Amino acid sequence: MVNFLLSVQQSINLVINSIISVFKVLLMSKFSVERTTASKPRCGILGNGPSLNTSLERDIEFIKSLELFAVNLFSVTEQYTQLKPRNYFILDMSFLNPNHVCKNGLQHMASDTTWEMNLYMPFQMYNSAYFQSFFKDTPNIKLVPYNYTIVTGFTWLKHWFFKRGLGTPQCQNVLVGTLFYAVNMGFKEIYIFGADHSWHEMIRLDDDNNLVVSDKHFFQQKDFDIAVKEKSYMSQQLFSLHKAFYGYEVVGQYAQALGVKIYNASARSFIDVFEKIKVNEFVNKN
């Protein structure tokens, strides 16, 4: 009886979430979405986790053979002008904050990009005069806005919206959104690097019972701490991590439905949705 009631409740939730998603798309999404296509059958996504340093040393030739995606603040690194990624994906609305470090990332993109590159951002960001001001004199950078409208509900409905760029999975982390966009671009194989996702190891309470989160990227020499100033409980932090990892499950199911293979080639990673590979062994085997 309990299982039956749970099944009924799940079915009702699916119907409700599907109806809500339809209204969200109708009210929030742009229906004239520009689509870009893959120039190669394989791409690589460069996360900013510390393990990317290992991948850039160990797997650099393989990485260079892929059509590359960079994310977030990759543009502030020396590797940006060395690897010249064809694609750059951002999602965080901090890129609209003139007092945030993200401003530095935009400035580097605008000044350092001497090759043709597609820059993907949500429509909300694209429509910002502040954001646009960085790229008014950058002929090498093509701005490609996308809908960030989270849809849930029946799988067939979600995938219908996904394919048309009208809806997306929840992207608690920018790599989820990048993976999703890469799948829609038509790549057959996608390789992820630098996706450590070891945040749970860096959450702690200080002596005054304040929640503190350490953060580190591949281009930083040491960790730095972020004090969560507003009232926050450990459960909320862990729920955020759940949403981040669950996003990979949704993208993984969508990629599988389209016959797209996603490989996690990160030297260190807690993502367990995709096949984990070591590049040298994988290349020799294939």
Rank of each mutant, 00 (worst) to 15 (best):
F4D: 04
L5P: 03
L6H: 11
N13K: 15
I16Y: 03
N17M: 12
N17K: 14
N17P: 00
S18E: 04
V22T: 08
K24Y: 03
K24V: 07
V33F: 12
T36Y: 00
S39R: 13
R42V: 01
G44Y: 02
G44Q: 05
I45R: 03
L46S: 02
G47F: 05
L52E: 01
L56K: 14
E61A: 13
I63M: 05
E67F: 01
N72T: 00
L73R: 00
V76C: 00
Y80Q: 00
T81F: 01
K84N: 02
Y88G: 02
N99I: 08
V101N: 12
L106T: 04
M109N: 06
M109C: 13
A110I: 01
A110Q: 06
T114E: 01
E116L: 09
E116H: 06
N118S: 12
L119F: 02
M121H: 11
P122V: 07
P122I: 14
Y126Q: 02
A129T: 14
Y130Q: 06
F134K: 01
K136M: 10
K136V: 10
N147P: 01
V151I: 06
L157R: 05
K163N: 15
R164L: 14
L166E: 04
P169C: 11
C171Q: 12
N173Q: 05
N173L: 03
T178S: 12
L179N: 08
N184D: 09
M185K: 07
F187P: 00
E189S: 07
G194Y: 03
H197Q: 02
S198I: 03
M202T: 09
I203A: 10
D206G: 04
D215F: 14
Q220Y: 06
Q220H: 06
Q221W: 04
M234F: 11
K243V: 14
G247Q: 09
G247T: 07
Q253W: 07
L258C: 10
A265R: 06
A265G: 09
R268S: 09
S269A: 01
D272I: 00
V279R: 07
K285R: 15
